[in-house]
Nucleic acid binder design. Sequence first.
DNA 1: AAAGTTTGTGCTGTGTACAGCTCTGGACAA
DNA 2: TTGTCCAGAGCTGTACACAGCACAAACTTT
Lengths: 231, 231
Amino acid sequence: MPQEIGESAPEPSHRGQPNDIYRILRDRICLLHYPPGYKLAESELAEEFSVSRTPIRQALQRLEYDGLTEIRNGVGTTVRQVDRAAFDDIFALRLRLSELIGEFPAYDEVPLALATVDGLLRPAKQAKADNNKADFWRLNHQLQEATSKLIANHALRDTHERYYLQACRIWYSVIDDLFEAQSSDFIVEVTDIGRALQHGDVRAVGYIQRNHISYGMRRIVELSKRHPAPT
Amino acid sequence: MPQEIGESAPEPSHRGQPNDIYRILRDRICLLHYPPGYKLAESELAEEFSVSRTPIRQALQRLEYDGLTEIRNGVGTTVRQVDRAAFDDIFALRLRLSELIGEFPAYDEVPLALATVDGLLRPAKQAKADNNKADFWRLNHQLQEATSKLIANHALRDTHERYYLQACRIWYSVIDDLFEAQSSDFIVEVTDIGRALQHGDVRAVGYIQRNHISYGMRRIVELSKRHPAPT
DNA sequence: AAAGTTTGTGCTGTGTACAGCTCTGGACAA
DNA sequence: TTGTCCAGAGCTGTACACAGCACAAACTTT
């Protein structure tokens, strides 16, 4: 049963309801609060957000279009399992997209990004020490958000975010084995990106991100070799 | 008032109604049958497709999410004008995406693509001779569809299609001035891609496409220099 | 005559009822 | 005991009614 994860409260009186609901649900999926296979019942969500099924359906359909959920008639909406083929495709593309960041640098955003990234280092170490996966996801999210803003090309930025959201679900099945490695890696990544930003080198940020995406991908490949029959 | 454009008839009994409606409307927008600024009234469409407003709304919301339309409360759904900044971003990204095609070649699809592309040459020349813009768009669409299938990476293919759909609307405002150049260019592109496919060189297909996207982009830039105040 | 206000029209946003589909569990027959 | 079939529950898909909002035209006031 999901609990508060730092999202804005589901105020019933707010205007852009469907959009807000979409974002909240998306974050829950990507923060693995709703694990793959989790069933999202329209009526339950309608009750939680104190609206009718209609705005809920809008949000769920958008999630399906994002590739995050799967809606089957007569069954319900479930969080999609990422199959390995799709996973490989998405990671391969993310590598290339990160390499493109340097082609469209938004230097205006560097100071803000630097401040954000600097603020991530201490909590990241804390989350690693505490073995706190939820916090770790949130920090990952924040880093992603900060680097996205460094992309001046709006189309690339959208795509970059889109596939980040799709990719992060893959970690659900492997995080128990890889948390140690990934959290260490994250600290290195934050440090390196901070250094790059101090130099104002957005292209470097992209390459650093590319490398760490690659490292994560390789870890997953290694792990699935050791466990050849993933449940 | 839109008329048949080769789409499958709006059979009322069909199953995946919202998805079909979405695709039909999307094609109408991208084939410029619905020009930028065109107003899509839910009730009208509901009548045309013989369904209630509900499935129509689903399709329209998806179109908005694609960036093709704009929904404003109390006003209606209109086909979005592409502003130049977004246009530049999309074209710049499309150049890079086309360059990536060769990294993920789907050689299995080469024979089918070759057959399709070969079949495009004659109608393309015909459309150019007839100054038939509608046919020209359709052929453009078919070439895009054929080359998309050459991309083995599903994520890249989706993105590639996505931004093609967004980009093609820009031609609406400039096609009268550029039809001659673009249709000539298209014939060259079809010829070159056919040659590349005969060699089984998918990477070459990507580069050819990249180049012609670039040519088109430059033509638009040139044109907007000559007409510095576009209405 | 001009400016501000009001009212009317038409649109989308939301809520609700019902139809259609899928799966599950139990009863019956082999 | 096991396989099969059927009925019921629960879900989403659709249709429709009503509320909220935006714009425009007409009206009133100055």
